[in-house]
Each structure stands twice: as C-alpha cells, then as structure tokens.
C-alpha cells in the first residue's frame, strides 16, 4: 500500500522539488508545443479561407474570414486544371493499385506465415530490407522502363509500379497477422478436403481483416498522395494524369489568382480528410504501425 501511495504521489513531488524554475520550464514547453501546433493548423486555415477571398483581400487581411465569400474559385480550379478528370484518374489508379497490392501480398504473406523453412526466412528478410531502399533512387531507370515498355504517358504503368513499392511493408504486416491464425483451423479445413487456395481465402483472409484494413489504409494514403513518379511517368496529358500532378499546374500559370490555387488544393485534400474523419483511429494506428516497418 505504502509503495503505491508513494508512486502515485511521486510525479507531483518531483515537479515540486524542481520548484519555480521547473514550473516556468513546464509552462514554456506548453507554449512551444502549442505554438508548433498553431504553425501546423494555420496554413490549413489560411488555405480554406483564401479559397473564398479575392487576391487583394487575401493580402490586406490574411487571417480574417471572408466577408462576402467568392464561390467561383472552386469551379475555376476544376476547369483550369481539369481536376474533375484528375480526381477520376486518381481514384482509378489508387483502387487498381490497391487491388493489385492485395492480390500479390496476400498469397505471399500466407506462404511466409505458415512455412518455417530457410527459404521463406530468406524471402521475409528480403521484404524487410525493402523499407530501406529509397524509392527515389530508381526514378530515372523506372522512367526509362516506362518508355521502353510502351506504357509511357499512361496511368497503367503507375498502377503496375505503385504496388511494388508497397509490397515490402504490406507483406511484413500481413505476415505478422497471419502468424496469429491458429494452425488447428487450417488442419480442420484440410480434413474437410479444402485446398491450399480455399484455406487462404476462407480461413486466413477473413481472420486477417484488421491487418488487411491497415494495409489498405496505409497504401490508400501513399497511392493517393504519390507525386514524383506520377509526374515523370504520366506527364501532362489531362486524360491520364492524377490529381497530384494536375494541382501544381495551377501554380505554374502566373495569371492564376491565389483563390483558385487554394481552392484547387482544398479539392485534393477532401477525399483524404473524408477517409480520415470516418476512420480516424484506424488510420492513426495504420500510420504508426507502418512508419517504422522493422
């Protein structure tokens, strides 16, 4: 009893002992952390309000909300950069790349989770090492590969390419999940005459749904937000390019008003924020488990 009492009282005791300077420091750290938080939020706030303000108002009173909001910037942004087509392209690329990622990663994780051979240990290590290969390094050769395969300036090549970068993390995360499936379940399925394929889809996949959700959320963010490879490979064709490639074209046009650029940026953020608001906890968990992938 006495030890727990001491322990619970200790934090306050510790703070008290450091005295006034301690309290001042504590106050300063509150201040600094919230100052940084403000720095994170302020540009977002500025982005939203500027989407409704005339250029002169944006500069004269940068932080005041729009007095008489201008609504046509969203329409302008969509028309100038064909953001409507770009949204569809991004959705297509993201969905197709996600499907392909699962199609490749699920059987692989299944194989790695249930075999203990030396070969599968080696394979797992190869995938685990994949986190440390910076994707940027392969930019130019990948661009040449797209050119030589005749899939240059198409979404198709990006759809084929994105899963490759996502595979290491997806395979490692899914393997961890599939290891928790009790072998007895598989054995009883086998007794009922199930094939390996049936075991994978009927036993392992349903039981690894949380892992699959994590992988999907994480890769949704990565695929939707991918910029450099899409820029280099898809290029300027409005019927093929994704939203991340289309957006900066608004800036390149010097005549563009700020409001249009801000409204366009806001449009690109909407899908991500919808998913985030609906699946906040899951998304945060996914990002945390996916960040340090070792």
């Amino acid at each position: 009893m006495s030890t727990t009492k001491q322990a619970t009282r200790a934090p306050r005791g510790g703070a008290r002992r450091s005295g006034r300077s301690g309290r001042v420091l504590w106050g300063v750290s509150h201040g600094l952390v919230w100052l940084y938080a403000l720095a994170l939020v302020l540009p977002l706030y500025y982005l939203v309000i500027s989407s409704f303000k005339k250029t002169t108002d944006i500069f004269d009173s940068p932080l005041t909300p729009p007095v008489d909001p201008v609504w046509h910037y969203f329409e302008d942004a969509i028309r100038y950069a064909r953001l409507d087509l770009a949204l569809v392209n991004s959705a297509l690329v993201t969905a197709a790349a996600l499907a392909l990622t699962l199609l490749l990663a699920l059987p692989a994780s299944f194989a790695l989770a249930r075999s203990r051979g030396r070969l599968s240990a080696l394979l797992e290590r190869i995938f685990a090492m994949g986190f440390l290969v910076p994707t940027f390094a392969a930019l130019v050769p990948t661009f040449l590969m797209a050119a030589y395969t005749g899939l240059f300036h198409t979404r198709t090549f990006v759809i084929l390419l994105l899963p490759a970068g996502a595979l290491p993390l997806s395979v490692v995360l899914l393997t961890q999940f599939m290891r928790t499936v009790p072998p007895e379940l598989e054995e009883s399925a086998r007794v009922d005459g199930a094939t390996t394929w049936t075991v994978l889809w009927r036993v392992f996949v349903p039981l690894s749904m949380p892992g699959i959700a994590t992988v999907l959320l994480l890769n949704f963010l990565n695929f939707w937000n991918e910029y450099l490879y899409s820029l280099v490979i898809i290029g300027p064709d409005t019927s093929q390019r994704t939203i991340q490639v289309a957006l900066p074209t608004l800036q390149a046009n010097q005549a563009t008003e700020y409001g249009v650029l801000m409204a366009g940026t806001a449009v690109t953020l909407i899908p991500v924020y919808i998913v985030y608001i609906v699946l906040q906890r899951r998304m945060e968990q996914a990002l945390i488990s996916g960040a340090v992938k070792m």
Binding site: L104, A105, P107, A108, F110, A111, L112, R114, S115, G117, L119, S120, L123, I126, F127, G130, V133, T135, A138, T142, L160, L161, P163, A164, G165, L167, P168, V171, T196, L200
Partner: peptide, 16 residues
Amino acid sequence: VTLLAVPALVWYLLFT
C-alpha cells in the same frame, strides 16, 4: 506453398 510468395517477390525485384 512457399511458391505463393514468388509473384510478389518477382514484382518487387522487377520494379526495385
């Protein structure tokens, strides 16, 4: 069964 890991591996190695 380990062969099920091959498509993913090939894909990954091909593009990385």
